[in-house]
Design a protein around this nucleic acid. Structure first.
Lengths: 242, 242
DNA sequence: CGACTTCTTGAGGAGACTCAAGGGTGGTGG
DNA sequence: CCACCACCCTTGAGTCTCCTCAAGAAGTCG
């Protein structure tokens, strides 16, 4: 049996064959447990590694010149960590645990063998990466061109959509192990201002964020604020290798 | 003979074999000319295409809810256009020409055959995409956490570095077909404020940007402002398929 | 129960925006 | 070759989002 967390990202595009499922299992090397706040690796580390997130949430962050932190992306189970830095001699981002988490170390060699032995699986991994790039593009656009309120709305919707993918019955309430300072570092503002923005969402009856629990009361209003279009995955995969 | 523009992005990582060079040529389909300002495709278009930029500059942009435009990335010859939207049913970004440009249409099928027949070439394309993702991550961090002056410094350095890659003898002056409004849409501010920021760089003797010509007078000061680390490409490619 | 992190609120300040208007500059057509 | 028009650049003044500094309240974990 292959754990669902590992394949959900792939099967979102297309079902996998048995041999592809077997190949996917070869990615998962030794497992490592992380405490909340623990670092998996720091930006600047040489020969950056690859990881598969099995449980918990982690995040990718960068420190800019002034010392401020920008969180680039939040990772959930099934996500592959460290792919962008694969192209570089030194890690571009820091990986750390937002909650207690466990990861499997992935060897580069195993990745290379996917390209060699399972071209269709490699192409699907390529697509997953491109989709994550679109998410980054959306975040860049909202960071550059919208207010904090709009950005927070977009973030809540994106987190919710990702949770629904792995748990379709999650409903309108979900847990997110993010402090207000984490949110601030995600959205490029200060924690103080995030606090005021959350209160505005609550006052308007759109979202309540209490402790680590988020409840969406008015999804339509939230989507209107966010300005995000629906992003349906491609259904034309006829070009993929057999 | 294969044109250098098409292979430079690949050979930045590793030399290509003859069969890989041949395979790469199969990507380039019918050519299309673009006038300055002409659109190659709009966000929301169904079944988004792939393109290879042969000459000129193009850009990828998104419109957010308020109607404001964010430029996501500037493309130079040799860049592949449209990869992120490959994962989606509808194009996430708009592609348009910053200068007169020519592109080759790339069929999805040809891309699929690269994965099938040339796994090493596919893996290199994967790496190129990951490197572009790092650039996006850097831009997200600077957008969220730095001033306009720092962001402008980083942008000038990144453009210069990319030009030097294809033309090592370019020196400290280069041409960039970007208006101040384009710059503003790249950096997430208004054209008026970009104007004042450019004047500050000029006043301090760091960079002069006149018309479409950019001259770097003090590269060290520029790098200090930008806060960008050097991003060396990985030299460990032993995991790639043969 | 005590220490630390996280959340909340207030007040003043700075970066960036909007609105408005004038001056350059290059391309196109007569 | 000149005139015109469209686009681009420049400058000023007032405004707003978001920041910084400061302090206290409320959780949370050992």
């Amino acid at each position: 049996m292959v754990e669902t967390w590992a394949v959900a990202r792939f099967t979102a595009f297309a079902p996998l064959t048995d041999s592809e499922l077997l190949r996917l299992k070869t990615l998962a090397g030794p497992e490592r447990q992380l405490r909340r706040g623990e670092f998996l690796r720091h930006e600047g580390d040489a020969a950056p590694g690859l990881y598969l997130l099995r449980s918990g949430w982690t995040a990718s962050s960068m420190i800019v010149a002034g010392g401020a932190r920008q969180i680039i992306r939040v990772h959930m189970p099934g996500d592959m960590l460290g792919l962008p830095s694969l192209a570089l001699a030194r890690a571009a981002d820091t990986l750390f645990a937002l909650s207690p988490a466990s990861v499997s170390v992935v060897s580069r060699r195993a990745l290379g063998q996917i390209f060699e032995a399972c071209p269709r699986l490699a192409a699907l991994l390529f697509l997953i990466s491109q989709e994550e790039r679109v998410t980054l593009m959306d975040r860049l656009a909202s960071m550059g061109r919208t207010t904090t309120l709009d950005r927070l709305a977009a973030l809540i919707l994106q987190l919710h959509a990702r949770i629904l993918r792995s748990d379709p019955d999650a409903g309108d309430t979900f847990r997110a192990p993010l402090t207000q300072n984490d949110l601030a570092d995600l959205l490029g503002v200060t924690g103080i201002y995030i606090n005021r923005t959350i209160q505005q969402l609550r006052r308007d009856g759109i979202v309540s964020w209490v402790g680590r629990s988020v409840t969406i009361h008015d999804a339509a209003a939230l989507r209107a604020l966010s300005g995000l279009p629906e992003r349906d995955l491609s259904d034309d995969l006829s070009w993929l290798p057999a």
